[in-house]
Design a protein around this nucleic acid. Structure first.
Length: 428
RNA sequence: GUGGCCGUAGCUCAUCGGGUAGAGCACCGGAUUGUGGCUCCGGAGGUGGAGGGUUCGAGACCCUUCGGCCACCCCA
């Protein structure tokens, strides 16, 4: 019981789970590449100030969820809680802000929260950032990218797209005043959390889960009505493009995002199959962020998705990539000279059959136990070397699967014919 | 940070105040001295999360603590 355990909320991903992760990662890699996006790999640790300046000082992420520490030089560093900030930093620092710049990244993120279904302290995000294009065709592109991803992953029926425009910073400030003014009149009808948010972050009241608060919001001013002409036109154009591409969406005027840097387009892909954490993918436009971080003012749009949530969603939808048996061939030997022959033959076979999974039996044991391991390995064939084979210069080839086929069974053949015989059998 | 539920074998769970804590699966060995799967037989594996209390007696009741799950907050 005194053995060391993993940090709470930081989970091991075990061999029987990695195939589904690899499936997701493989699909993502190929898909992003097909849209012309290049991968960027970013540090996990950044200066604390990077996140304070980009995400927003008063967000929960910055206020209480960051893993922040001082290094030996007494610099304040933080384990990245999200990917966009670091990507923007890297784009500025490495002069990547040519137009257009299409990037994607993946990797672990860290937030100090209580773990629950679909949420852990170390979690993984896959994200996309497209810099340099301010027009809504780029918004449409990244959304199309996600829509195609759900199809490729087999979860398109499990997610719906929620879309909104939160306009410019200025428009939001005006709206914020109107919203607060309305809600102040009904302060007593608000739930406790929302009363608190009235001063700290009124826009977040819009996505309150409290039924009474939501009812109250039916009479509240609507953010979409406060958009300036340009933002409204962009939103209309985005909708036209999505309509043309056949991507269904639901306008959610109460959709606001948690991070301060968004403007205009915001969107979320949500599901009802993951318990309380319904957001699988979320993103939006952030035209002010690059300038705010000290780069040449450059518009941007992007999204991030939670890989753990995606994996849960695939499992809920019954998408299960086939977990391959651990071996194709299992090499059994009895006696030390025979093991030498087996080892050498195994190396030759790996030369002859690249990609074939050849597992050597190690650790000795009876023939019976070795054969049992051979069976459990899932291998199609066992190759057996013992005293008899060694004396005769042969090897025994035994089929472990499909043994009802008459052509398959056990045969003893000269070493020299092994490769040729195997080639024929494996081709079936 | 707050709340609810839960910690018994590697895993899934019994036992619900009384003798040495059980089962299935998994694991190891044997039946078959060189042959897997099916069957049968056997074996190993637990300080009952930890600490304290009540009691003649606690895995079970009480308290504390640690851990897990779920939810709130917040978010991917």
């Amino acid at each position: 019981m005194s053995s060391i355990r993993a940090i709470r909320g930081m989970n091991d991903i075990l061999p029987d789970e990695t195939p589904i992760w690899q499936f997701v990662e493989g699909v993502v890699h190929q898909l992003f590449s097909s849209y012309g996006y290049g991968q960027i790999r970013l540090p996990i640790v950044e200066q604390t100030e990077l996140f304070q300046r980009s995400i927003g000082e008063v967000t929960d992420i910055v206020e209480k969820e960051m893993y922040t520490f001082r290094d030996r030089n007494d610099d304040s560093l933080t384990l990245r809680p999200e990917g966009t900030a670091g990507c923007v930093r890297a784009a500025i620092q490495n002069s990547l802000l040519v137009t257009p710049q299409r990037l994607w990244y993946c990797g672990p993120m860290f937030r100090y929260e209580r773990p629950q279904k679909g949420r852990q302290r170390q979690f993984h995000q896959i994200g996309v950032e497209a810099f340099g294009i301010a027009t809504p065709d780029m918004d449409a592109e990244v959304i199309l990218l996600t829509a195609r991803l759900w199809k490729l992953l087999g979860v398109a029926d499990s997610v719906t797209l929620q879309l909104n425009s939160i306009g410019s910073l200025e428009a939001r400030a005006v709206y914020r005043e109107a919203l607060v003014a309305y809600l102040e009149q009904h302060r007593d009808a608000l739930d406790e959390d929302s009363q608190r948010r009235l001063t700290s972050n009124p826009l977040r009241i819009l996505d309150s889960k409290d039924a009474g608060t939501q009812a109250l919001l039916d009479g509240a001013p609507v953010l979409l009505d406060y958009l300036d002409e340009a933002a409204a036109a962009d939103f209309t154009r985005l909708r036209e493009l999505l309509d043309a591409a056949g991507v269904a969406y639901e306008i959610n005027p109460r959709l606001v995002r948690g991070l301060d840097y968004y403007n205009n387009t915001v969107f979320e892909w949500v599901t009802d199959q993951l318990g309380a954490q319904g957001t699988v993918c979320a993103g939006g436009r952030y035209d002010g962020l690059v300038g705010q971080m000290g780069g040449k003012p450059t518009p941007g749009v992007g999204f991030a998705m939670g890989v753990e949530r995606l994996v849960l969603l695939l499992e809920a939808a019954g998408v299960r990539p086939e977990i391959p048996a651990e071996a194709d061939l299992y090499l059994v030997s009895f006696g030390e000279p025979a093991q030498c022959a087996s080892l050498a033959a195994g190396e030759n076979l790996r030369d002859a059959f690249p990609g074939l999974r050849i597992v050597q039996h190690n650790g000795g044991g009876s023939f019976k136990s070795q054969m049992k391991k051979a069976d459990r390995s899932g291998a199609r064939f066992a190759l057996i070397w013992g005293e008899d084979e060694l004396a005769a210069g042969t090897v025994t080839l035994k089929a472990l699967r499909d043994t009802d086929k008459e052509s398959l069974g056990q045969q003893s053949l000269p070493q020299a014919e092994l490769e040729q015989t195997l080639r024929a059998l494996l081709a079936q």
